[in-house]
Amino acid sequence: MTDPTVGVVFRPQSPPEELRGVVQSAEAAGIDELWLWEDCFLEGGFTAAAAALAWSGELRVGIGLLPVPLRNPALAAMEIATLARMFPGRFLPGIGHGVLDWMAQVGAGVPSPMTLLREYTVAVRELLHGATVTTDGRFVRLAGVALDWPPAVVPPLLVGGRGPKTLRLAGELADGVLLDVAISRDQIRAAVDVVEEGAAAAGRTEAPRVVVYVELDPAAADPAKQVAADVAFFAAAGADTVVFQGPDTAPAAEPLIAAIAAR
């Protein structure tokens, strides 16, 4: 078992003008990854990621996750490819259903979110790998679409999921999975198993990347010690990356950065 990479979430409950300071603090502390959310109706994922990448030199920046009903897959692939070309090896896009109530609120809800996610994942991944895509699916329809500027270093496309159908899809079609804090500690290993089963059923030989979000209360007695314990626990459960987020009552990233650096 190799040591996992460690990241921190800049929660969008913090105003966007605070992002630059968090990026600089994370990079100065040697944090591996900074993760962003695209929750309605807070901050745009691609704009925030572009700024964070431009303000840093080595920090990897992920978006976990981009709700697929909000963007045409060709547009999503264009955005991902642009950032991947400008910052090769440093951008980590994640896609998923999004919060279905929010999707309905903006008129983007669909009757079969699983079908949309399946069609979308296949199309975006193929576009990023330089394919010309023609598909006439239930929701995704592309006619001879290809990126003029596909990325030379193709970023891993992650799928965020909780339920077994989505987790299996992530293993089958994506490059990895993003597991959020709604999945309990007791469920993590089982969730990873489902992802790996999906990959095996699809005949994929490379293990899917597993990114796990972990909530950490920076007011805990010894947050640095808790970080170290959580990293060890989730690595043993199959995580390749452990990403810490603050709770709703304390969303700021700086105390988490300090705790990770001190572990």
Rank of each mutant, 00 (worst) to 15 (best):
T2C: 14
P4T: 04
V6H: 13
V6K: 12
G7F: 03
G7P: 00
R11V: 06
S14H: 08
P15M: 06
P16Y: 11
E17R: 10
E17I: 02
E18N: 00
L19C: 14
R20I: 00
V22N: 02
V23M: 05
V23F: 10
E27N: 08
G30F: 09
D32H: 12
E33D: 10
W35K: 05
W35M: 11
C40F: 10
F41R: 15
F46R: 01
T47W: 12
A49D: 11
A50V: 00
A54M: 11
A54Y: 12
S56F: 07
G57Q: 10
R60H: 00
I63P: 02
L65P: 06
L66A: 09
L70Q: 12
L70S: 07
R71Q: 01
P73F: 02
A76E: 04
A77P: 04
M78I: 05
M78N: 09
I80G: 02
A84N: 01
F87R: 01
R90I: 07
I95A: 08
G96I: 03
V99N: 15
L100D: 09
D101T: 14
D101W: 04
A104L: 14
Q105T: 03
V106T: 13
P111L: 14
S112T: 08
M114H: 06
T115L: 13
L116V: 03
L117K: 06
E119M: 07
E119R: 15
E119F: 10
Y120G: 12
V122A: 15
A123S: 13
L128F: 07
G130N: 11
G137L: 07
R138H: 05
F139Y: 15
F139Q: 02
R141C: 03
G144I: 04
G144N: 12
V145N: 06
V145G: 03
D148Q: 07
P151C: 08
P151D: 09
P151G: 09
A152I: 08
V153G: 01
P155I: 00
P155C: 07
L158C: 01
L158R: 01
G163V: 09
G163N: 15
P164V: 14
T166L: 09
L167Y: 02
E172A: 09
A174Q: 04
L178R: 01
D180M: 08
V181L: 07
A182D: 15
R185V: 01
D186T: 12
Q187A: 14
I188R: 03
A190L: 12
A190R: 03
A191F: 07
V192P: 10
V192A: 13
E196L: 11
A200N: 08
A200E: 13
A202S: 15
G203N: 07
R204T: 02
R204V: 09
T205R: 14
A207M: 08
V210W: 00
V211P: 10
Y213S: 11
Y213D: 03
V214F: 06
V214I: 07
A221H: 11
A224I: 01
A228D: 13
A228R: 10
F233C: 08
A235M: 11
A236S: 09
A236N: 09
A237F: 04
A237V: 05
G238P: 00
T241S: 07
T241W: 02
F244E: 07
D248F: 00
T249E: 10
P251D: 10
A252P: 09
A253F: 05
I257C: 11
I257Q: 06
A259F: 12
I260S: 05
A261E: 02
A262H: 09
